[in-house]
Simulated assay, not measured.
Amino acid sequence: MTVSIDRPRKLGIAAGGGPLPLAVAEAALAAGREIFIVGVRGAAGPAIERYPHGWVRVGAMGRFLRLFKQAGCDDVVIIGPMTRPTLRDILPDFQGLLLLPRFIKRMKTGDDALLRGVVEFLEENGIRVIGAETVLPSLLASEGLLSKAAPSPSQEADIDAAIRAAQEIGARDIGQGAVVCRGSVLALEDVKGTDAMLGRVAAMPAEGRGSEVARDGVLVKLPKPAQERRVDLPTIGVRTVERAAEAGLAGIAVEAGGAIVADAEGVARKADELGLFVLGFPHSRTHGARS
């Protein structure tokens, strides 16, 4: 009698930059899953070469699909930051040329529309796209404080104002974050990302953004209203805490279950070291903040 043993589905990882692709790879391996990483040139780092891997340039959609198919991947996680390409950056292969009109249209709409196009392309070709949190659940922000510090009542009001501002730009597929201080919107995230936004805040006069002595203002990141939540969830990490401190902010707030925290223990340590709060607020708060 032959006994069939269900093997875990082989996992493909479409890797952008940062440590998250490697964290997902290690979690999958620890769970007994085979993996194959496809690194996007110009975004993924050389550390992916420690694992079974291949490389793909932006626009080479045929090779992108073929690498996962040849490796026998059933599921794919798309993880890690990548600079949004311009048309000049894209070097399509034959499959990419066929898809170019579709992707040009999506590029004009926004980042989330572009990523939804990548998801659709993979799933049209028999590969299931899954969220990174299904492999590594601890990546998702939990509800409550990660830090010893907590927001004051006025900072709670700034969080609500920043939620509203982030929802407005998210509805237009522009960005996922906003900085608010004492009721005033100081900056909104655009295609340049969170670091660039915090850099703009850091360059403002101290009276407009708090100071080393008395921090004030908050950074909020949350998913866009129509976000494809399997890819490109808002992400914070230790560097985000450092940049928020450089900008004179009092803290960071993200939607619990709707954001990724890279290295939560490290984020908590750095926040306590620098005197910032890091808060995960419930999804229900994003509805209350609209009023």
Rank of each mutant, 00 (worst) to 15 (best):
L65G: 06
E120M: 04
V238F: 00
L136M: 13
A226H: 12
A203D: 15
G39N: 11
V58L: 11
L198P: 00
G144Q: 09
L91Q: 13
F121P: 00
V3N: 02
R7Q: 15
P137K: 02
I48Y: 03
G288D: 04
P46M: 10
A28M: 10
V220P: 01
G217K: 02
L87T: 01
L20G: 00
A132D: 02
P151K: 04
L100T: 06
A166E: 11
G251E: 10
A47Q: 14
Y51V: 02
L188C: 11
H287G: 00
C181G: 09
A28K: 04
P205W: 03
V56S: 08
R128M: 06
D195I: 02
F281Q: 06
L20A: 14
A44F: 09
V238S: 03
H53S: 13
L139R: 03
V118D: 01
A14C: 13
D74K: 07
L87E: 15
E246L: 14
S4I: 11
C73P: 02
A43V: 11
R209Y: 07
D93A: 06
S291V: 01
F277S: 10
A166F: 11
L22A: 12
I163F: 12
S142H: 10
M107C: 01
G183D: 09
V179Y: 09
R106N: 02
V191M: 12
G266Q: 07
Q227K: 12
A247M: 07
A196I: 08
A14H: 13
A141L: 05
K10E: 11
N125W: 06
D93P: 05
L274Y: 07
L29F: 04
P19G: 10
A44E: 11
A226T: 12
P101H: 08
A28S: 12
D111R: 14
P137G: 03
R63Y: 04
L222M: 15
G280F: 05
G210T: 13
I90L: 06
L198Y: 06
D93I: 03
L22C: 06
A187W: 09
A15W: 05
D272N: 15
K270N: 01
A250P: 04
R9Q: 14
F68A: 06
R215T: 03
K69V: 14
L139E: 02
R9M: 12
G12F: 03
L233R: 01
D112I: 03
L198N: 05
G251D: 06
D74M: 07
L145D: 03
Q155M: 14
A25R: 03
V135E: 12
G72K: 07
R84L: 13
R57D: 15
I90F: 08
G280T: 02
S142M: 13
D160K: 14
V119Q: 00
R209Q: 10
G237V: 05
L122V: 04
L65N: 05
P225H: 05
P81T: 00
K148G: 13
R50C: 07
R285C: 08
P225D: 05
E49T: 09
R88T: 10
E265K: 15
K148W: 04
V24H: 05
M82Y: 05
L140A: 11
F68W: 08
A23F: 12
S138C: 05
Q167I: 01
R7N: 10
G237T: 05
R172E: 15
L67I: 10
R84I: 01
K224P: 02
R128N: 08
P225A: 05
V278L: 09
L233S: 01
D160N: 13
A171D: 13
H53P: 07
I260L: 14
R33S: 09
